[in-house]
Design a protein around this nucleic acid. Sequence first.
DNA 1: AGTCAAGATTAGGTATGACTAAGACATTAT
DNA 2: ATAATGTCTTAGTCATACCTAATCTTGACT
Lengths: 228, 228
Amino acid sequence: MTELSRSTEDYLKAIYGLGRSGEPVPTGALADALAIAPASVSGMVRRLAETDLIAHEPYRGVQLTDAGRRAALRVIRRHRILETYLVKVLAWDWDSVHAEAERLEHAASDLLVARMADALGNPAFDPHGAPIPTVDGEIEEQELVPLTELGVGGTGEFRLVSDDDAERLRYIASIGFRVGTRFELVEVTPFRGPLTVLRRELGASPQLIGYELAQSLLCLPCTLEPAA
Amino acid sequence: MTELSRSTEDYLKAIYGLGRSGEPVPTGALADALAIAPASVSGMVRRLAETDLIAHEPYRGVQLTDAGRRAALRVIRRHRILETYLVKVLAWDWDSVHAEAERLEHAASDLLVARMADALGNPAFDPHGAPIPTVDGEIEEQELVPLTELGVGGTGEFRLVSDDDAERLRYIASIGFRVGTRFELVEVTPFRGPLTVLRRELGASPQLIGYELAQSLLCLPCTLEPAA
DNA sequence: AGTCAAGATTAGGTATGACTAAGACATTAT
DNA sequence: ATAATGTCTTAGTCATACCTAATCTTGACT
Ligand SMILES: [Mn+2]
Ligand SMILES: [Mn+2]
Ligand SMILES: [Mn+2]
Ligand SMILES: [Mn+2]
């Protein structure tokens, strides 16, 4: 197995992210995700299929092979360990690590990543709440719901947000939300209107959150009543 | 000024290293240093000259322009800060950091390198004794001599060794030599024969060093007698 | 001056990975 | 059943960066 190129690794990562449902990933979706012309994706898909990293059904979509999935998870592990290291050790902001990790993930050796993981105590989640695959390629996807699905009066814990929009991350931090923040959903307005949440913290005041933003905040519902 | 490619940065770095004398660097010397066919170097040299990073006199050699020298020193700074960080913070061995830095230097941002430099207290030398250029591109080349030029009875301080041969670095460490080690040259044998040195340390015993290896150990002579 | 060898360049080719424009396919609407 | 639509692929091009083989330049030696 020879070294994979930067492009190859980014394609595999994108395919992994878009294909978690199990459905084949249309090449057009890949093109959107990677900001590359559809025709270019068709060409790359041919090469990836030739090296057996993906399976391609023309006009249907692509799926990772076992080798492809392993390679994708290795890159994802590198990416997330790097992000965590930058934030925890080098005091990087959580909104700017993604761009840096997006390049370093292709240059950092597994050994370097192992050293960083050790220094961090082998964390299970990155700064945005995404699970970090183990060295053996195990990853446990979490069962989370968007804040918008929580229901009025519900209590939840903010656990995960996509890291691809630095502005959004900055805003989320600015209203006091971090991964692990507990809150109550106190009000919901109809027609995809704003929501009001109250953090479970001393001195916290109600906070308005737009519907779109709320959709991007993935939460663990904490309502422990149903057992009654 | 657009992002430079990995190859471009490695060429500039090599040209800087080979051209410190001020003389133009023959493309063949570049080809040797980079382990790339001479014809390929000719092609790359044309592109580098077109973008005004180097000046090329056909059949004579190449020289860095001001822009090229600045770019080269930025890469060298990144490389050496990275090596130092790996050794000092992540407990990396001094013989294996070079390969890692050779890739990371093209992916790490100036901001990341600045953070690492800060964490290290802005060091002036890398783990092999090479000077680290400042952010403004200042670098002070040291006046060092090979151990072989020290003269019998001379005292010196080991200050710099090339980091491109991991085996050699491991051996040097195994005989108790680090950057900063003081020693006396107690014996020299003719016809490029082995030298005997004695470290200025408690419990140190005489150490044989082959001529070739001794040539690669650059030292600061400590003989403070001439002032008499 | 003429020859030769070493070194450098040019010529022609390959692989990667991107693009635009044109054509093919599948699905949905008429 | 046919036509329209959006999606996907193919065809052809380009830039980068490497290769081998052939040609050219330079400087040194006869
Ligand atoms: Mn990320
Ligand atoms: Mn990437
Ligand atoms: Mn190095
Ligand atoms: Mn390099």
